[in-house]
């Protein structure tokens, strides 16, 4: 079962995602970081297969954390989460930095699982 690290400052988003991911039976949530900095520390200790990272967080945001994580390991699988999916420059920046894909909010269960399977 693939290990997933959730990174979002919102408790409710983390719970939504955890439910989708866990109920699929294909993934296991191994941790929940509340900002970018925490995600880097948790990545180093938990070694997840996939990181689901919110773009818009207080403190270290998702894009900064993505840049740092990609510098640590070019093969790391990061999927960004955003309600700003339609904004081309944000999407482009995430993809150019190495994100595998971007999940838009509100979540669609099938779409979230498809993106995680393909990551």
């Amino acid at each position: 079962m693939k290990k997933v690290l959730l990174v979002d400052d919102s408790i409710s988003v983390a719970r939504q995602l955890e439910k989708i991911v866990t109920e699929s039976g294909e993934f296991q949530v191994v941790g929940h970081a509340k900002n970018g900095l925490e995600s880097i520390k948790m990545y180093q200790s938990l070694h997840p297969d996939i990181i689901c990272m919110d773009m818009n967080m207080p403190g270290m945001d998702g894009i900064t954390a993505l840049r740092t994580l990609m510098a640590l390991d070019r093969n790391i699988k990061v999927v960004m989460i955003t309600s700003l999916g339609g904004v081309g420059d944000k999407f482009n920046e995430a993809i150019k930095l190495g994100a595998r894909n971007v999940i838009s909010k509100p979540f669609e269960t099938d779409n979230v699982l498809k993106i995680l399977r393909e990551a």
Binding site: S83, G85, G86, V87, G88, F91, N92, N101, V102, S104, K105, P106, E108, N111, K114, I115
Partner: peptide
């Protein structure tokens, strides 16, 4: 269910 960028739609699909 969200507003999307065309490129995002193409990759997502």
């Amino acid at each position: 269910m969200a507003v999307k960028f065309f490129g995002q739609f193409l990759v997502e699909q």
